[in-house]
Nucleic acid binder design. Sequence first.
DNA 1: CTTATAAAAGATATTTTTATCTTTTATAAG
DNA 2: CTTATAAAAGATAAAAATATCTTTTATAAG
Lengths: 146, 146
Amino acid sequence: MFSKSCEYGMRAVIYVAKQTSLGNKTSVKEIASATNSPEAFTGKILQKLTKNNIIDSIKGPYGGFLIYEEKTKTIKLSQIVEIIDGDKIYTGCGLGLKECNAKNPCPIHDKFIDIRSSLKSMLETTTVYDLLKSETGEDKILQLKR
Amino acid sequence: MFSKSCEYGMRAVIYVAKQTSLGNKTSVKEIASATNSPEAFTGKILQKLTKNNIIDSIKGPYGGFLIYEEKTKTIKLSQIVEIIDGDKIYTGCGLGLKECNAKNPCPIHDKFIDIRSSLKSMLETTTVYDLLKSETGEDKILQLKR
DNA sequence: CTTATAAAAGATATTTTTATCTTTTATAAG
DNA sequence: CTTATAAAAGATAAAAATATCTTTTATAAG
Ligand code: FES
Ligand code: FES
């Protein structure tokens, strides 16, 4: 569904948010290890997310990454996906035609846009904050490694 | 959503089915041109689809690819996708964890499986035959190039 | 049997994605 | 000011996906 880069990115943001909520800044090394992602590559992705103002970073000793809780309420999964994977998943044709166009639909258009819309809507209505909150109770673990 | 190979494959199967229904066998060259796909690469994909018994091929003069109408009723999009892209799209975790497991769910599990299931179900309930039939009338064009 | 045609199979090349390594910049603390 | 730390930036490298080219096999027709 998503590229590896995007998966690493989403896992990283969730982990950073969790750590910030616990009062910790966290390093590339720690993020990569906690999310089971390659370290240097994760660094590149964090760079991109920082440039795009999803997370914040602080250089130097006692530095690291963080994202304030208030901000987690405004960051939607759709933003992370779009920054890393672009908007193909929201606008692209299921058969890979250059443009998806209801006026000139491909054979799977009607069925495909239902799915595509649900996905878009799910990503747009899910904030990082939502993911930190347990849905079933207080102690659901944030599972990011396996 | 799908790999380019998979997109080419779906477009090719739809085109072959359409041509068969018109009484024509069709060549790699014609399929590639009609679906706007790279010729040699499309040949490879057609090979794979033939081996997996999705379409039939005939070598030599007056040869080409075909898929009988009766068969189009039994071939689901899900089969084409699985042959080319594997089952990651049906079973994989949205965050890319090694396994998606409801007993040990990742933070987006609940929301993600809804989408994944709808997609799976859509692909499993859509046959190649369905795609050849107009949904709004008799003369909806099969759009495979753009 | 020979020739022409078209797919199958195999080998190679290109591009994109993923991953790593090195150098630079910022900054906290002594 | 110097040192240590950690991210940013830039340069390479490796792997996977996409694409092409060449050789082989099957077969229809003369
Ligand atoms: S035209 Fe193909 S999905 Fe809309
Ligand atoms: S565990 Fe991640 S989607 Fe199921």
